[in-house]
């Protein structure tokens, strides 16, 4: 594994705070997310993992009364800047949700949704993009004969892979996955994990998970959040075998959370 320090990080947070109204949810965050790696966020429920993901594509804007302070940069560009184009930002930051959420459209239309709203009309371009994304999401072989059937006909695990295909179809710089397997059965979970391993290297991936084995299996780096603070971040192997902080150790050994 290459030395982490030499890679220019894609996301850089410094003194970053986040508030729901007056209630602080993230406190003085300082975190680097390296390019082309899989970073896992772990921590007990309610510690702010999802909140941080939603900061990265400004989905928190949809909630009234939220506020960010400090600095959060994506590829050197400040996210916490009222002037930036949020639509543009969201195209660069793909997101996969906890509950699979395919649109009421055909499989094909689901995959090219992001491209269509970005104004792409060329049929061959869309067809190629669809095929490629589905192949990358390891779904192509299962759906290639029924691309124009409703996406609702797929299984839960296929739904989630479709959502991943949909996210990577617009060629984002980073893909955020918020507990992508928590609604899936073990077999589908395996497939998603294999997929993440496949995608690692091509994409920068951040995955939130409550499953320690999963974090260990798929991630290069792990960050442990606790009560709105980033407690510890490091190479997954190191963090799991020799945590520096007591809270991390307690969490990993199942003493709370």
């Amino acid at each position: 594994m290459p030395n982490l320090e030499t890679c220019a990080p894609l996301v850089v947070a410094r003194d970053f705070n986040f508030f729901y109204g007056a209630k602080p949810a993230l406190h003085q965050l300082a975190l680097d997310i390296p390019r082309g790696k899989v970073t896992a966020f772990i921590g007990p429920s309610g510690c702010g993992k999802s909140t941080f993901l939603r900061c990265l594509n400004r989905m928190n804007d949809l909630i009234d009364g939220t506020k960010m302070t400090g600095s959060l940069r994506l590829d050197g560009k400040e996210i916490n800047d009222p002037e930036i184009d949020v639509i543009d930002l969201r195209r660069q930051v793909g997101m996969v949700f906890q509950k699979p959420n395919p649109f009421p459209k055909s499989i094909f239309e689901n995959v090219v949704y992001g491209l269509r709203i970005a104004g792409h009309r060329n049929r061959t371009f869309l067809t190629d993009a669809c095929e490629q994304s589905l192949k990358r999401a390891a779904l192509w072989d299962e759906v290639k004969d029924r691309l124009h059937d409703s996406a609702f006909g797929l299984s839960g695990g296929q739904h989630q892979r479709l959502c991943i295909a949909r996210a990577i179809a617009v060629a984002p710089e980073i893909v955020l996955m918020d507990e992508p397997c928590s609604a899936l059965d073990p077999r589908s979970t395996n497939k998603i994990e294999d997929l993440i391993n496949e995608l690692a290297g091509q994409y920068t991936i951040v995955i939130v998970t409550h499953n320690m084995q999963q974090a260990a299996r798929v991630s290069d780096l792990t960050a442990f959040f606790y009560e709105g603070k980033l407690v510890e971040v490091g190479e997954t192997e190191t963090l799991f075998t020799a945590p520096r902080c007591k809270e991390t150790e307690d969490y990993l050994t199942g003493r709370f959370g």
Binding site: M59, M95, N101, P104, Y113, G114, C163
Partner: peptide, 23 residues
């Protein structure tokens, strides 16, 4: 989730309404 999924892909509110919510 449908609305959020669409917005997270960079759709405007109008696009989200027209292409995902309204259908």
């Amino acid at each position: 989730e449908i609305r959020q999924g669409s917005l997270a892909l960079g759709a405007t509110r109008w696009q989200t309404l027209w292409r995902a919510t309204l259908p």
